[in-house]
Design a protein around this nucleic acid. Structure first.
Lengths: 231, 231
DNA sequence: CAGAAAAATGAATGAGCATTCATTCAGAAT
DNA sequence: ATTCTGAATGAATGCTCATTCATTTTTCTG
């Protein structure tokens, strides 16, 4: 069995043969990571259901089927738990986003459409998940750390979308728009559609939302997008 | 001096000559209304600064320069205060919105542009105000009352924008878009631009935001909107 | 001006909750 | 089998507020 001489080493992935310092087995490290993830997921469920203000550590522990003190054991404090939850959420989003980029074959137009479809897919665009995002956005002004995390993922998104738009514009010669304009419009649009989905879940529907995006794309980039269907 | 026989009558504006029930003078009623508004404005400042979770009644009272118990005296409970604050916020927005509609002379295109400019004007689009909106949106999922208030103003907004788009489409014969598509896109866009303004206040700027909206309008409704400037 | 009613105060109360920690439990190492 | 270590528990602690209310101050009325 391999050992890490400490949790720190474990994080840096430096396996050591048995040493005389405190030993932490890989199995333990993994178990700990799993527990943390379990707690983070419980936290998201609670925030989705009761909001950030309404979520107590007892709620989270209960949701995870564990005891009172468990959160402080693994996260030291409530603040920490929430910050890591936001980080997890952002990371999760980023990985789905990158997954789509990798899968979408070649053409920038196809990639762009695939990204828009991702944003409006049930995997991301469901009231419960959105509620968590909005709960954190609602705290952005008073919590610089939250702002930083959100800002980072936002910039990344914007950058990718703008690059795709740029390629499309170069490819199609569209004199009336700039990549910056279109990217701003698209990112805002998805964010705004999320708000509608959260606020009017009964009347909101994926189809209309996607249609609005497709309509926009078909009008700005007519050579690359047809009204009903990508590319 | 005129009297109301009770606060309820006062709200309904029914002045009565002195009766043998408890009497409330108009001056008192107005003073009370002013105090309530003062407290609501203090609440918005606090929420903007510390978030909903971080705002205590002591904060609000302090911000207003009054004492501990004042909020409960005027609003009965914290919950009430927050709900009425959201209502006030929505009402304030609606009145600005209607003000623009009345002022904008005649043409639907001019009205639409004026509305977009309002949404991105400093009066509405400043981090402090937006933080309050987002704080409430963040609680929408767990507070049905908040959802209802937000939903109502949202629907109103959507309805007006869609009607304007409809008139523009009829006027200009635009076969490739529907009023619903464009209205959805526009409302989402402004909501999304608010999020960017909140999250990246340093890099965000009104000019780019407006430009993205103008660009969109000039592309969907080319006969009604030119690239740099309305109608 | 006196008396009454309303508004405002702020100390006291107690509920709710994050955090602590002595104790128990589980499983790996020898 | 025994020991040892880290994980987990949950009762206890203490702090932060919302809320109450007896008292004071202000405002109105005749």
């Amino acid at each position: 069995m391999r050992y890490y001489s400490s949790v720190l080493d474990a994080l840096f992935g430096v396996p050591l043969p048995m040493a005389n310092t405190a030993k932490v087995s890989i199995a333990r490290t993994e178990a700990r990571a799993r527990r943390r993830q379990q707690l983070i997921e419980a936290t998201m469920k609670c925030i989705g259901r009761k909001g950030i203000g309404g979520t107590t550590l007892a709620d989270v522990a209960g949701e995870a089927g564990l005891s009172q003190g468990i959160v402080n054991l693994h996260f030291q404090s409530k603040d920490n738990l929430f910050r890591e939850t936001l980080q997890y959420l952002a990371e999760e989003y980023r990985s789905k986003f990158e997954g789509v980029l990798e899968r979408a074959d070649s053409s920038p137009a196809a990639s762009l459409m695939a990204l828009m479809e991702l944003d409006l897919s049930p995997s991301i665009c469901q009231p419960m998940k959105l509620a968590v995002w909005f709960a954190f956005w609602g705290e952005v002004k008073s919590r610089p750390t939250y702002r930083k995390i959100c800002d980072e993922i936002d910039r990344y998104y914007d950058e990718v979308v703008e690059r795709l738009c740029d390629e499309i514009i170069k490819d199609g010669y569209y004199p009336n728009v700039t990549a910056n304009n279109v990217a701003t419009a698209l990112t805002s649009m998805t964010n705004g559609l999320w708000l509608s989905c959260l606020i009017s879940p009964q009347s909101w529907n994926r189809h209309d939302a996607l249609d609005a995006v497709r309509c926009y794309l078909s009008v700005v980039f007519p050579q690359h997008f047809r009204r009903s269907g990508a590319t």
